[in-house]
């Protein structure tokens, strides 16, 4: 039993070491990519197209719906729609928390799983060896554009998510309270602080990097069997969600420290 436990620890440390090395290489290649941007630019554009543009409809709809639901549910509480607190609650819930996190979950389910599956299948079909045989590192060619594309898409989608979420909630609120939407928007902007915008942007970029790096890592970690692909995809989704929630908590703590 001791031997099994020791072997398990050794394997875990080995995997952790490999993962750390892989991520370091991925980030190093990302900086290199920014220096010579023409390489893999097409992959980057297509990644933003798949991850960002194609997810816009579902993100917009989801954000509009959730924004409206917050107001409808909140209207049952006394004085919820009357005070200045309404705007702060909407900004904190939608712009700082729900917007980035909800977008991240959608991206994990849509694009993160797709990246892991795609890269896993490429490993199984020996396409990586083909890249290596012509002197192109597959991580640089396939991983880096996906990391950058996903981070940018995540940031842009978070902006859309926040806008649609706040618009949805304020529209429903103006219908219920019969206050003009313009007045609502004016009050909303008056309660929008710089820390809200910075926290939202920071979360979107961090979540994008986490999802992309995890998905790429698990895609490349398929060793040869086609049955590994769904297993790695499921693990990639789980790990991405956990890491995003942890990162969210850390950013909240940092924000509190900064604003205290």
């Amino acid at each position: 039993m001791v031997e099994t436990f020791g072997r398990h620890i050794r394997q875990s440390l080995g995997q952790l070491s490999y993962a750390a090395g892989f991520q370091l290489f991925l980030f190093k290649e990302t900086f290199n990519f920014l220096g010579k941007r023409r390489i893999g630019l097409r992959v980057l554009i297509l990644q933003i197209l798949f991850t960002g543009v194609e997810a816009l409809s579902i993100i917009s709809l989801l954000s509009l719906g959730i924004g409206a639901v917050i107001i409808i549910q909140g209207a049952q509480l006394p004085d919820f729609l009357l005070g200045e607190q309404l705007y702060r609650i909407l900004i904190i819930v939608i712009a700082r928390e729900l917007g980035p996190l909800l977008t991240a979950f959608v991206i994990i389910a849509r694009s993160g799983s797709a990246i892991t599956t795609e890269l896993g299948n490429m490993v199984v079909s020996h396409e990586m060896e083909a890249y290596l045989s012509v002197g192109i590192h597959p991580v640089s060619q396939l991983g880096v554009p996906r990391l950058i594309g996903m981070s940018i898409s995540m940031f842009l989608l978070t902006v859309y998510s926040n806008v649609f979420g706040l618009l949805g909630s304020l529209t429903v609120s103006s219908i219920i309270t019969r206050v003009r939407l313009a007045d609502h928007l004016s009050a909303l902007f008056a309660n929008f602080y710089l820390v809200d915008i910075v926290a939202s942007i920071a979360k979107s970029f961090v979540f994008g990097i986490i999802i992309a790096a995890t998905s790429v890592y698990y895609g490349f970690s398929v060793s040869g069997a086609i049955t590994e692909v769904p297993v790695k995809t499921i693990r990639s989704i789980g790990v991405s969600i956990v890491l995003c929630v942890i990162a969210d908590g850390i950013i909240i703590l940092l924000t509190m420290l900064v604003t205290a």
Partner: peptide
């Protein structure tokens, strides 16, 4: 469009605050 929206939000928030 996303960047424009972000700039609009930032400018309006900045002016109001």
């Amino acid at each position: 469009v996303a960047l424009l929206l972000l700039v609009i939000i930032t400018v309006f928030a900045g002016v109001n605050n």
